[in-house]
Simulated assay, not measured.
Amino acid sequence: MRDILWRLCLALFAGHELDAVAQAEWRLLYGLRDLDPTLGPPWFIALHVPLCVALMWLAGHPHQAIRRTSRQLFAAFAVVHAGLHYNLQQHPLYLFDSLLSQTLIFACGATGLLYLMPSLGRQRTTCSA
Rank of each mutant, 00 (worst) to 15 (best):
L32E: 00
L32M: 08
L32C: 04
L32A: 05
L32T: 02
R33V: 03
R33S: 07
R33Y: 04
D34L: 08
D34G: 06
L35R: 01
L35Q: 00
D36S: 11
D36Y: 09
D36I: 01
P37D: 03
P37V: 06
P37R: 05
P37Y: 06
P37Q: 11
T38Q: 14
T38G: 05
T38H: 10
T38D: 10
T38F: 06
T38R: 13
T38I: 01
T38W: 06
L39Q: 10
L39F: 00
L39M: 11
G40Y: 06
G40D: 00
G40R: 01
G40V: 09
G40W: 09
G40I: 03
G40Q: 00
P41A: 01
P41C: 04
P41I: 01
P41Q: 04
P41G: 06
P42Q: 04
P42S: 06
P42I: 09
P42T: 01
P42G: 00
P42Y: 09
P42W: 03
P42H: 05
W43C: 04
W43G: 09
W43F: 08
W43T: 09
F44W: 15
F44H: 13
F44C: 13
I45T: 04
I45Y: 07
I45L: 09
I45V: 07
I45H: 07
A46E: 06
L47V: 14
L47P: 02
L47G: 10
H48K: 14
H48R: 14
H48S: 11
H48D: 11
H48I: 05
H48E: 10
H48Y: 13
H48W: 15
V49N: 06
V49Y: 15
V49E: 09
P50Q: 03
L51A: 07
L51Y: 15
L51K: 14
L51P: 10
C52L: 13
C52Q: 14
C52W: 15
V53A: 08
V53L: 03
V53M: 05
V53W: 14
V53D: 04
V53P: 04
V53H: 03
A54C: 07
A54W: 15
A54L: 12
L55M: 14
M56Q: 08
M56V: 14
M56I: 15
W57N: 07
W57G: 02
W57D: 10
W57A: 10
L58R: 04
L58W: 10
L58I: 05
L58M: 12
A59D: 07
A59E: 11
A59C: 13
G60H: 06
G60R: 08
G60C: 12
G60L: 06
G60D: 08
G60Q: 01
H61A: 01
H61V: 10
H61R: 04
P62F: 05
P62I: 00
H63C: 15
H63L: 13
H63K: 15
H63D: 14
H63E: 08
Q64M: 15
Q64D: 15
Q64L: 15
A65W: 12
A65V: 03
I66T: 03
I66R: 03
I66A: 05
I66N: 00
I66F: 01
I66P: 02
